[in-house]
């Protein structure tokens, strides 16, 4: 259970960085940390004690197949990691445009934001 708790601590730290920091790059870093925490959490849910990587080799019987870790979260996290990279590039592009328009990364200086 402590492993899940440490993952949740990592998630909360990313959320704190996203909410309380003023620099936009720091906010992006907070989102990246939250991304890591969620991916690690999903992989840890699928771990089995003494588990093997889910790759079938010649000569494996049903009992060896039963020792595999859960392959389903791994497949979904593989998708999630790549999507995280795409979202990060979009966020960095937004940061660059904001810097070109306002000349600073400081959120408290950018006062011309209109919803």
């Amino acid at each position: 259970m402590t492993v899940y708790f440490l993952c949740a601590v990592l998630l909360m730290m990313g959320l704190y960085c996203l909410v309380a920091k003023k620099n936009i790059v720091k906010k992006v870093i907070g989102i990246v940390i939250m991304d890591y925490a969620v991916n690690l959490y999903l992989i840890i849910i699928g771990y089995k004690h003494g588990g093997l990587a889910p790759i079938v080799e010649p000569g494996m019987n049903a009992q060896t197949l039963g020792r595999f870790v859960d392959p389903l979260p791994q497949a979904l996290v593989l998708t999630s990691i790549v999507i995280g990279l795409g979202v990060l590039s979009l966020m960095v592009a937004m940061c660059i445009r904001m810097y070109e328009k306002h000349g600073t990364f400081d959120m408290s200086q950018i006062s011309k934001l209109r919803g």
Binding site: V28, I55, Q74, V92, I96
Partner: peptide, 26 residues
């Protein structure tokens, strides 16, 4: 944790994240 595919993908994506963040913002 028994996920070699994820480890390789994370390694590649991590290098790209470093490059994008440094080149794009820093």
């Amino acid at each position: 944790l028994g996920a070699p595919d994820i480890a390789i993908t994370q390694l590649v994506v991590e290098v790209l994240v470093l490059i994008i963040l440094i080149r794009g913002t820093i």
